[in-house]
């Protein structure tokens, strides 16, 4: 597998949301609007790239029996850094994402990539893997956020498309997240089957 494939597989073939179905908690929780989905996705992508890089560099120096606690500490450090930087420079986004930023620590995607890819590969492929998966995740969350924002509140990236009074509030709430995600996955599966 070359570097290009390491990078692109996260978009479609191994898309963490639509194909691997990982990280469902932020996927369903924060995608009430496109901007929230985008912000959450980019924050996760940032953590993924850095943690994959750090872990691929130190993996050989961490004894096998304590690799999980070791990885988690590294991931948690990056997440805390992201959390503090967002609070300082993007306060409004930080507020709307709330608890979900600290929860990136327990996102299966991050630990999953560390365990299954970064700990076995060199620095450059690991970073590309993290970037690809992270952008795939961002793409999925933004798409879901767009659908929920348009159907739920009649806006897209905060630009009003039609009056909020015609929006279906269920899409802003949790059940709408499940419905929209379900149909997106069905749609992606259909495409994957015909390909």
């Amino acid at each position: 597998m070359n570097n290009w494939q390491n990078f692109t597989k996260g978009f479609f073939k191994e898309n963490p949301t639509f194909v691997l179905l990982l990280g469902m908690c932020p996927t369903l929780g924060v995608t009430t609007s496109a901007i929230n989905g985008l912000g959450m996705g980019l924050a996760t992508a940032f953590v993924l790239v850095l943690s994959n890089l750090a872990i691929s560099l130190v993996a050989n120096s961490i004894p096998d029996k304590i690799r999980i606690p070791g990885f988690i500490v590294i991931i948690a450090a990056f997440v805390t850094v992201v959390d503090m930087c967002m609070a300082a420079y993007l306060p409004s986004l930080h507020e709307s994402l709330g608890l979900f930023i600290p929860l990136i620590v327990v996102n299966c995607i991050v630990l999953g990539r560390a365990e299954s890819f970064a700990s076995k590969n060199k620095a450059i492929p690991s970073m590309l893997d993290g970037l690809g998966i992270g952008l795939g995740f961002t793409m999925a969350l933004t798409l879901l956020g767009c659908i929920r924002e348009v159907l739920g509140s009649g806006k897209l990236f905060n630009i009003t498309l039609y009056s909020e009074n015609y929006g279906m509030i269920v899409f802003v709430l949790a059940p709408g997240a499940f419905i929209a995600l379900g149909y997106l996955i069905a749609f992606i599966n259909r495409i994957r089957k015909t390909n």
Binding site: V58, N60, S61, I62, P63, D64, K65, I66, P69, G70, V73, I74, A76, A77, T80, V81, M84, C85
Partner: peptide, 29 residues
């Protein structure tokens, strides 16, 4: 390269170093 052996001394030392460096980084930020 070769993996570091999971001996008690290694584990304590590595975990200590990982947490030390991580907390130092968080502290700086």
């Amino acid at each position: 390269g070769k993996k570091l052996e999971s001996s008690f001394k290694n584990m304590v030392l590595v975990l200590f170093l990982v947490t030390l460096i991580s907390s130092a980084a968080v502290g700086v930020v």
